[in-house]
Design a protein around this nucleic acid. Structure first.
Lengths: 262, 262
DNA sequence: AATACTTTTCGTACACGTACTGAAAGTACA
DNA sequence: TGTACTTTCAGTACGTGTACGAAAAGTATT
């Protein structure tokens, strides 16, 4: 009858697993077979594996072998492989220190988004998990980044609802940039197939696609440039202007209140 | 010595595979064992499988079984599973008719981007391939969408280089929106875990994360709203304004030339 | 001490994508 | 006719994520 079954990953983000190094001794105070591995150990081992063999080589089976435990045992501490990566990345994100941010709302938004972007872009395997549902909700300490952006939008005069949308739009753009870039970088790493060296759009009809044909030989070069920050600025400017045009009073009031330059 | 080996997927996008229904008879004019399957048949079967069992059920093995051929045979007509999906999606994109587009550059950009977005968002499995390298380069007829956006940017006064960047930023934003949305839609379809029903950010420190706590109970609702077009408008406005501020002369000239309203 | 209950562990099994290898089935030329 | 060459086909095998279910190892209760 009692279908309790509460594996480790069911209780919330904060894994209250005792810090016993090995499963030896250690009074548990709770019933059931004593665990031989903790979530923390698993994450440690995963990091070790990634640092040693590269993140592509990280697999559930290898991880279990590294830990000297059965493969399926892992699934009592972690729901998925996705869950595992999510834990790794949020744990890392939580270690990013909160820097001094500009006081001016717009600049604060941009600085925070750039921070998020750079942090995530540094982890190639982040791409695997970035779009996972509930990513934002599973952030730990690092929710301050979300708060910072939302607060910036509100301080600039957005309504709370607008501010949430501002955050989401920035998130979309950032995720897209990272994902697209991650995939094309990966391919650039592969020994280039010859077809990937020739200019794009070369076989196109000049009369129907004049611009593409004209720029074709420079397309790859231009695409390789890092223009995240320009795009971000454009997006933020556009979003804030849009919000301002929807509810002009608030913006004016907010600007008067904090005396921002602009 | 002669390491010719030119499987079907090596020659460019246009698969010049003869349309023989079965491999029977059919003089080839070329040497080698006559193929029993064509790329077109494979794509047909894939579409059939997707329509019948859903795209999650599409696997290389099932597809081969459906076709009555050996699993590995598929790999002579298609490089990857990714390649297969890419072929499916570009073929579909090529069937989207080119509609009447607004004459005004900015509106033309937005209309085209919206078209791209809606077309891709309709295919849940597009998400699997959207970030694939060379996606743009492998478009067939539908490159007109790229041309349209680039042309719009140029017509508005952007340099060709700026126009390419405009396209890329729009592409990033669009891809991000689709991917994030696809993943959260998928989870919403799963029988909701109870943890996913409670409001976000409920356990947070009110003094440090005031905005998140305040909006927490509405976060999910707001995130569920479709705000692609607002975000797109904001982004495009921002990008065009940015380009204008970098090279003001061109913009003025372009505006005078085509007499756009603004 | 014996039994019930709870939690963790892990062996087995399935479907997947795909690398490798060699057989099969044609054409071209001797 | 036979031999070489080219292309396509497919069997086998590896490593993957993970569903399922049974065994193990504790505590709690009788």
């Amino acid at each position: 009858m009692s279908t309790a079954e509460a594996p480790g990953w069911r209780k919330g983000t904060a894994g209250r697993n005792d810090g016993t190094v090995s499963g030896r001794n250690a009074p548990h105070g709770r019933t059931g077979r004593p665990p031989v591995t903790s979530r923390a150990q698993i994450l440690d081992a995963a990091r070790r594996l990634i640092n040693r063999d590269g993140w592509e080589k990280l697999s559930i089976r290898r991880l279990a072998t590294e830990l000297g435990i059965g493969t399926m045992t892992l699934y009592h501490h972690v729901r998925d492989k996705e869950d595992l990566l999510l834990l790794l990345i949020t744990e890392y994100a939580d270690q990013v220190p909160q820097p001094d941010l500009p006081g001016e709302p717009r600049e604060r938004i941009i600085a925070t988004a750039t921070l998020v972007h750079d942090a995530l872009a540094a982890w190639p395997w982040a791409a695997e998990v970035l779009t996972a549902d509930g990513f934002i909700g599973r952030l730990g300490e690092s929710v301050w980044m979300v708060e910072s952006i939302v607060a910036g939008a509100v301080d600039h005069g957005c309504t709370p609802e607008q501010a949430v949308h501002v955050f989401r739009h920035i998130w979309y753009y950032t995720v897209g940039e990272i994902l697209v870039r991650a995939h094309s970088a990966q391919q650039a790493a592969d020994a280039g197939r010859p077809a990937d060296r020739e200019p794009l759009f070369s076989g196109l009809d000049t009369s129907r696609m004049p611009h593409l044909v004209a720029i074709g030989d420079r397309w790859r070069t231009l695409s390789a440039q890092d223009t995240y920050s320009q795009g971000l600025r454009a997006l933020v400017d556009g979003l804030l202007a849009q919000a301002a045009s929807e509810t002009p009073h608030r913006v004016a009031a907010a600007k008067r209140a904090d005396g921002s330059a602009e």
